[in-house]
Design a binder for these strands. Structure first.
Lengths: 218, 218
DNA sequence: TAGATTGTTAATCGATTAACAATC
DNA sequence: TAGATTGTTAATCGATTAACAATC
């Protein structure tokens, strides 16, 4: 089954639904959920919930709702989260190191989190050979081989802005097709590569727009 | 001047335009830029660039384009980036500490970055009193006073998921109106509070959707 | 069966793009 | 003046919401 042409707006909501279902499964409140309830918890209208899910199949029962466990497992499959993926991180600065710890803990604690940080890469010889959260740092020269050997399709970029584009191209050339980019740079890459930007500066600057005018100190 | 009702889609692009102009100013390529060129560099259509800017005034000259320096300064004003803002960060785990270093370095290196990390907060007594990148960690009990005293309107949340909602409410009650939230939780807050979610798990799960089917090892 | 809720179609809303007169 | 590019209006596109027949 291939569902081409699902809009990104839809795909972005699927992990949100999944999270609601995970919470529900953990708390064991009810084995069933209506689009109404699911929408409320996800912050989305009920009609939109039904429409989003309907793109992928008929998961509910009229008059009843959706089975939490069933829908959960379907969503995991749709999101490819039913199998493990090796992920690498490039750029082991303080942010990179923090994310490595974060991802690793998550992987160990939550068995449904199937994204495995398999290796870290850095250009600095002083960092190569060290480990963070048990994950070794490799030199950039080994990037290509590592990606191919471990079938890495997903990568996190935490290198400085001026190295980001070059790093991304290397990753893509080696076979990576999904990138979570923390560098404040718009990456220019082939169409088939998916990029998620975690551009904190942009977010902070956007927030600043909404700040109220300076209150003069009384 | 108050421009109510500007859509968030528009506001999100302003910092992108600003970044392009900053780069241009630094490289000194040209004192003028057309909506065409600006759009290309920002990854946006030229008509949209003109429409976005037109919400706030007439910044260009027909037949000529936009003056880089002038438009830059206007955008900074619109985004409230022409004055300094005190920001606090709550939750000094490894991610929080990394972000603190990141923000502080940025503040020191780039004089046009006017967001100043004024304090860190943590519930753990062992962390209180320490400093990160020169910024002291305060106990949660001092949160309220600190926010009022330093006129803090913006905060970064890096506490664990189960503490995020509570933390956010405290911040808002003390006067914070813009939050960058790293906890994997949908915060429920009054309308007037702006929240930017940096939910890495959601981003990674979304990226997983686009991964190609597992290639069987040859 | 009666009540509830899905899946889906039609209506609405909002954002982007195309086009062009105004004008530098 | 001739050429270029803005600011803006109208057309298009896409996403969300409303409504309801189908059906559990």
């Amino acid at each position: 089954m291939r569902w081409n042409k699902i809009s990104d707006a839809v795909v972005r909501r699927l992990p949100i639904y999944l999270r609601v279902l995970d919470d529900l499964a953990k708390s064991g409140e009810s084995p069933l959920i209506s689009s109404q309830e699911l929408g409320e918890r996800a912050g989305v209208g009920s009609a939109l919930v039904r429409k989003d899910l309907a793109w992928f199949g008929e998961f509910g029962k009229q008059g009843v709702g959706y089975e939490v466990e069933y829908l959960r497992s379907e969503l995991r499959q749709i999101l490819n989260l039913d199998r493990e993926h090796n992920v690498i991180l490039v750029g082991v600065g303080s942010l990179g190191a923090a994310l490595a710890r974060y991802a690793m803990r998550r992987y160990q604690v939550d068995e449904s989190f199937r994204l495995k940080l398999a290796g870290l890469f850095d250009q600095d010889p002083d960092k190569v050979g060290r480990t963070y959260a048990g994950i070794p740092v490799y030199p950039m020269a080994e990037l290509n081989d590592f990606i191919r050997k471990h079938n890495v399709r997903m990568a996190i970029i935490t290198v400085p802005a001026d190295a980001a584009q070059e790093t991304a191209v290397q990753l893509v050339n080696s076979g990576v097709s999904a990138i979570l980019n923390f560098a404040p740079v718009k990456l220019i890459l082939p169409e088939h590569v998916q990029v998620a930007n975690a551009d904190l500066t942009l977010e902070l600057q956007r927030l600043a727009y909404y700040l109220p005018p300076e209150k003069t100190r009384e």
